[in-house]
Nucleic acid binder design. Structure first.
Lengths: 234, 234
DNA sequence: TATCGAATTTAACCATGGTTAAATCTTACC
DNA sequence: GGTAAGATTTAACCATGGTTAAATTCGATA
């Protein structure tokens, strides 16, 4: 007879796997063993073993040789971990003065250590924020997450007026580069030119910048409406 | 050939053991296997195995059947963990509104997860505090700790005017009891009577309280000087 | 449709940190 | 100074989460 596990009893490793599967799933589902192994920096053999284990726990459904998908229970835990991560990031940034390229690493460790009490307190102290410092939406405590796919800066055409809504949080060097160019969340940008190598010339606060693929693919934007866009340049 | 390990590479378990040994050592040195096992809530066999391991790492000096003492290296790590713990407690209390009976449990988990960066930031944000919310001194970043032995409230005589300087942080129920009686850090107390069962009648802000051993032994005090003590009651 | 290369799983192994039960050491007491 | 009780260590075991190397499966292509 197996005891019904209503409370939290998941190890840090399990949480890391579920989070990784969740994120990979949004790109391609089902998630392959090798994609998971690469994301977590472990061997494919280790991933296989854990996939079997997670399947046994009913946190994923895993078909050998054909990858895995989260179950509702697994998704719930993944979203809780992501909620912790992004709330902590926002707290580090807003309340403790961390730069946006430093918050991810610190949150990575803290996300497994905080209590529900701690989560609720920082949520309240921050005024129930809807995104992390990179613009990623924070899952709600009830597990609801609205995660819309935005266009990248690299997909913009010359003449577009856009606003930065979200940036990829993975590479601190890219984030520092954006900071240096004054390109923060909600910064308005005018795309003045597309070049043959897919690089762009953009205007940020009147200053022209040449941005290449690794940057332009890391910045997600929304088009400015007619009344928001300055009349000149258009 | 063993690689020289200059940076931090201690597991959470090692940190917990060193912290426990440090605290037990202040009561009786060397620390016995059974005392350690009891403090950590594990079997004596597990403690023995870890003691051998810690001795091999040169973090303690351990003589089988005769207990263990921290080496300088071990003490340094123990003090770092304790510094983390008490700084976090103070942060939870001052910056996040935690009550003093709630901070220990939360800090217990966070102390192993924070970076040196995080430690430095909360230290600065708090204005370099010297104690945790229970009055325990916070080890300095360079490893120096001044930890003086104070008398307990239970050791006071009738007629004493004293001030609460420190409380045992172990039992949340005791802490909540103290809160209810308005007995916080730096509260002034007049000891009006000692009774035959070692309980005391004390005056807190003019209100009489009967305090029994478990409470009076958990409160550390310093005598008020003549000019600090109110003239009446004395 | 057979085959070959890549992806995946299995097998054997390791370290950490725990368990219980049995053996052994210490020490206090007669 | 011998002995028995209690403390401690050893031995055998377990779970978790990793590793590398060998075997197996999948699926694209000839």
């Amino acid at each position: 007879m197996v005891k019904f596990d209503s409370g939290r009893a998941t190890s840090q490793a399990v949480e890391d796997y579920l989070k990784a599967i969740y994120k990979l799933q949004s790109v391609t589902a089902p998630v392959t063993t090798s994609a998971l192994a690469e994301k977590l920096g472990i061997s494919a053999a280790a991933a296989t073993k854990m996939l079997k284990q997670l399947d046994g726990m009913r946190l994923i459904s895993y078909v050998p040789y054909h990858g895995a998908n989260l179950t509702d229970a697994g998704r719930r835990i993944a979203l809780e971990v992501i909620r912790h991560h992004r709330l902590i990031e926002q707290y580090l940034h807003q309340a403790m003065g961390y730069a946006w390229d430093q918050v991810d690493a610190e949150a990575e460790k803290l996300e497994h250590a905080i209590s529900e009490e701690f989560e609720a307190r920082i949520d309240e102290l921050l005024g129930y924020p809807e995104t992390c410092p990179h613009g990623d939406p924070i899952p709600r405590a009830d597990g609801v997450l609205v995660d819309e796919r935005l266009q990248t800066l690299g997909e913009c055409a010359a003449g577009d007026w856009v606003r930065i809504e979200r940036v990829r949080d993975t590479d601190p060097a890219v984030l520092r580069d954006l900071t240096q160019r004054q390109m923060g969340l909600h910064t308005q940008i005018f795309v003045s030119d597309r070049h043959s190598d897919n690089s762009l010339t953009i205007l940020v606060a009147g200053t022209p910048h040449l941005v290449h693929e690794p940057i332009s693919a890391s910045v997600f934007v929304t088009p400015l409406t007619a009344d928001q866009a300055p009349a000149n340049h258009g």
